[in-house]
Design a protein around this nucleic acid. Structure first.
Lengths: 221, 221
DNA sequence: GTATAATTTAATGTATACATTATTCAACGG
DNA sequence: CCGTTGAATAATGTATACATTAAATTATAC
């Protein structure tokens, strides 16, 4: 028995994958009919997927010119990191106030452990995956569904850029100790400390990335 | 010559209007075909509009049951106000850093004046419109397009609820003096002060509204 | 009378044909 | 030769017909 998953949903997934993996490069244009052909379905579900992706800021519909996969400029990165800084800090504070048990925070702790281990082996891919997980989980336990949704959206928008800069930046050892201190503050229920620690963490990350983009003259990704 | 505005765009506008004005009440269900009939167009553009509205959090698609106009619960209000608090405070700080001239801030100042005048006459509708304008303009001069988009989305989600609570809450005189102090901090270029003043302003507003909802046993709006 | 299975129904999901319109390219006039 | 106009073109926007499928309803067995 084949479970019924709508084509529009498949199109959404597949287009997202192609954007993140670079099969649809930043700045490239594509006709609805081309995409439909490639995905083996009609324009209708593709169009629906494209509308979703537009509202998520991953591409732009340019009438008569096709859909453009949106590049991410340094200014975009700055905007996105600013939003993430504010909302994740809020989440960190709220998580601290919520009084989670150590057990409920195990997922966070394990993500940090994976980051440490990955860093030992200099496996930046694994490190990045665990880092993403840490931030997503932090936002989740913050308990605000809208913050979750917005943070996921912002993270998606920088995903490609992140892959590019990952191997340029210095080894993120400081990042790991930051994470531990944030987790510790949450465990102790120190909301103010969790907030400000995480804010500082994000602001540093932003500064490093933006600096990197300028140094390497990366006008967009 | 007839200006060419796509039906899907008309549908979006008109559905938004009907949601905000209560023609499509919170919690009500509607079939795509009904909406299409009412709007005098086929299902296709209506469907596209509905997908947009779903991604903006105004309605939910419930397969086989029609689209549901999403009610806003006190928990939703709390989430939304938290997001607005963080992002508008960021905007206030950034606006202060940007070093705007008095002239560039005229729009903000005028909005405050309109609020004062409206309050004199106890015209809460006008006051609310000017208040919306103040917050939107504040976010605009904050210079982060993503913050603008998110703030607009959150504001849309509480628009209906706001209309309901507007006449329940005490006269927002404190609100006006808050606004003046925020504007003053921005003018002086005091980012830290602008941030914390606006944060306090929003946190107070949140507390008042949430309290009101509980007192009046308003489980959703 | 109740529970289960089969059938009907009604709504969405999808394909396709068509309408509309911005762009392109060519013809024409200056 | 350049600019303007107008037809051709190609893409999106829209309507509609159809396929699919979850829900409702009926029929049937126990």
């Amino acid at each position: 028995m084949t479970k019924s998953v709508p084509n529009s949903h498949l199109a959404l997934q597949e287009l997202r994958r192609r954007i993140f993996e670079g099969d649809l490069p930043a700045g490239s244009d594509h006709l609805e009919s081309e995409l439909a052909d490639q995905l083996g379905m009609s324009r209708t579900p593709v169009r629906e997927a494209v509308l979703m992706l537009e509202s998520q800021g991953l591409l732009a519909l340019r009438p008569r010119k096709g859909v453009r996969i949106l590049p991410v400029s340094p200014e975009d990165m700055s905007e996105i990191y600013d939003v993430l800084t504010e909302l994740e800090s809020l989440a960190a504070g709220r998580a601290a106030e919520a009084g989670y048990t150590q057990d409920a925070l195990r997922d966070l702790a394990q993500a940090i452990d994976r980051m440490d281990a990955a860093l030992e082996r200099s496996d930046l891919e694994i490190w990045a995956t665990a880092d993403d997980h840490f931030h997503a989980e932090l936002v989740r336990i913050g308990g605000n569904r809208r913050v979750m949704m917005i943070a996921a959206m912002m993270t998606d928008q920088v995903r490609r850029a992140r892959n590019t800069t990952l191997y340029m930046r210095p080894r993120p050892t400081k990042s790991n100790s930051d994470h531990r201190r944030v987790l510790d503050a949450i465990l102790r229920g120190d909301a103010h400390m969790a907030r400000s620690l995480h804010r500082a963490h994000r602001e540093e990350a932003k500064a490093i990335i933006i600096d990197l983009l300028h140094k390497h003259r990366l006008r967009f990704l």
